[in-house]
Nucleic acid binder design. Structure first.
Lengths: 338, 338
DNA sequence: CTGAAAGCGCTTACAG
DNA sequence: CTGAAAGCGCTTACAG
């Protein structure tokens, strides 16, 4: 049933029905109530494509993941939060996966040109990110999950990656650790650079010099955590503590420590950054893992919120947040063995 | 730039341009080439909302997750596969999250009435699933990930859950295990029922009687696996083997075994169902875990494919598949200790 | 507060 | 093989 038919059935004009249903003020309350009730009863819903064509709004927000393979646990938590928030405003999420950066760029061009989305969520930016420049040029509104540099201001939400890893490093240094290894993410991205800066800054505070053999990076997976830790443990002078960029890496690190006949927490201290996976709680690991904690799901919700505001006309430079990260000391970080 | 402007710029009618761009046959190859090239150069893309309104197709497929919180690692792998496949046909994925079953039902009604999607992916069906009946009534095409009973046939892809768990159970029985525990999923769903049936059938083959204290269920998370295993190990006569419904549960189970001062694989054998998470490989665990393996990502791709076919007019009853599951014996299943 | 009419940007019978 | 025109189902100035 379309608007015309519905309107005639309840003896009103299409105009009035349309206005009543979109919550415009210039309709009498009784009329609106009557329309809404009739819509419910008769099962009328505006055709979304027609609505979009008429308003020029897509009613959807896009997010593209590079490497279908990289759509992992972090993405899913983030998406869960994003979707929860956008649902409130009836905004759809349009998910695309691409393989390369060029494809990603092409995807944004396509989304913009075909007016398929009203805005886009960009994640894991590099320090100077092409994609940001592109979106600004295209005039496609966007919110960045992470930080970057650009001439024009843009909306973003980031966590305090510098502070998080600095505090973790400091905590270990205070416990007497001198050889602290660090498993970082892809070093092209801002978050990895910030974390590394935090790590180095805290080392310096304690008179320690960064040792490149103790700094490694890769995907945040169990497997990579395992491999990198095996390398660390094979060094002539292995670390007594490891900072892992994700709970996933921490799982692998702990496994490698055990395989080497050592005891995680006792022989090698562990701190992990915890994005808070409901199915993988650091308290439940053995030993309970000290973490820098910042729920990625909450970030997803907030970014959804920021996107909505952006579409309502708020200025990008008023939509910029950096969230603090909490260090939660548990059982996996003990004083260095004498 | 819209069609009219673009067409006039290249000196053709809107009709011809439209036909050339949608790949209709009745356009001269040279004309088509010229149009496509000009579109590329001038950056013209059809407005997707207008296209949809005119064709009556939404160009999107919906999937709804109950409990934003349940959007976990299984969902994300599945989505990765689905998205990879649908991208090929330019079909968007529309993700919704809801909290209750009523909300989910309402979501389908909304999607159908507003013509927001052309089809829907339904997952984790129960044995007689209301949602299936609803979608059939609404006339909204759908593909089910899993199996169910219904009067009218429908498209589905399921794995052989019965066979998978039966084989796992058999394998353990052959190794001499007599007390085999089973961590199952939500028992309302078909897959859990099938798995339980497989478990019981294989026990029976070996003259074993199911013991309800050894059959437990819950979410497929590390935490639940941990708790349930702690219960098992606290029994007067604890199991010598555990079958876990997911790698996530297996992680928790192994942790509980260790916490109890026992050794996974040696003291308590472990088999896990492995949906194949790229970041959590059973070979890399210690001990390497015996699994029933069936990649959920591949299932997502295939279901995307089936959805496309369904929209092309293939009959639901020609789109029904059950995938075999492979038992991969590794180190975590050893003969029972004397 | 309500309605008639134009317009959003496409597709697609129909005619040539 | 190409084009003029109607139609998809809404929204929204404009007029009353």
């Amino acid at each position: 049933m379309n608007l015309k038919e519905f309107a005639s059935r309840i003896g009103l004009s299409a105009t009035t029905v349309s206005r009543a249903m979109s919550g415009y003020p210039e309709v009498r309350p009784e009329t609106r109530a009557r329309v809404l009730e009739a819509a419910e009863t008769l099962g009328y819903r505006p055709n979304i494509s027609a609505q979009r064509l008429a308003t020029g709004r897509a009613g959807a927000i896009g997010i593209v993941f590079q490497g279908g393979g990289r759509f992992g646990p972090h993405s899913s938590e983030f998406m869960g939060g994003l979707s929860t928030r956008l649902q409130r405003d009836g905004i759809d999420i349009l998910v695309s996966t691409v393989e390369t950066e060029e494809e990603e760029i092409a995807a944004y061009r396509r989304l913009a040109a075909s007016k398929r989305v009203d805005a886009v969520i960009l994640h894991t930016p590099t320090c100077r990110d092409k994609r940001i420049a592109l979106l600004q040029t295209l005039g496609l509104p966007f919110v960045v999950h992470g930080r970057s540099e650009a001439k024009k201001p843009f909306a973003f939400l980031d966590i305090d990656n510098f502070g998080a890893i600095a505090e973790a490093t400091r905590h270990l240094a205070v416990l007497g650790h001198r050889r602290i290894a660090f498993i970082n993410g892809d070093t092209a991205s801002t978050f990895a650079r910030d974390r590394q800066d935090g790590y180095c800054a805290a080392l310096a505070e304690h008179g320690l010099t960064p040792d490149s053999t103790l700094m490694s990076h890769g995907e945040f997976t169990d497997e990579t955590g395992f491999r990198l830790t095996q390398c660390f443990l094979g060094l002539p002078s292995p670390p007594t503590a490891i900072i892992a960029g994700s709970m996933m890496s921490a799982l692998g690190a702990m496994r490698a420590i055990r395989v080497a006949g050592l005891s995680p927490g006792t022989d090698v201290a562990i701190v992990a950054h915890d994005d808070v996976f409901p199915y993988l709680s650091p308290e439940n690991l053995v030993p309970a893992v000290t973490t820098t904690q910042s729920p990625i799901r909450a970030a997803g919700e907030r970014i959804g919120d920021m996107a909505v505001r952006l579409l309502q006309g708020e200025e990008p430079d008023s939509l910029q947040e950096v969230w603090p990260v909490e260090l939660i000391v548990r059982d996996s970080t003990r004083p260095v063995l004498a």
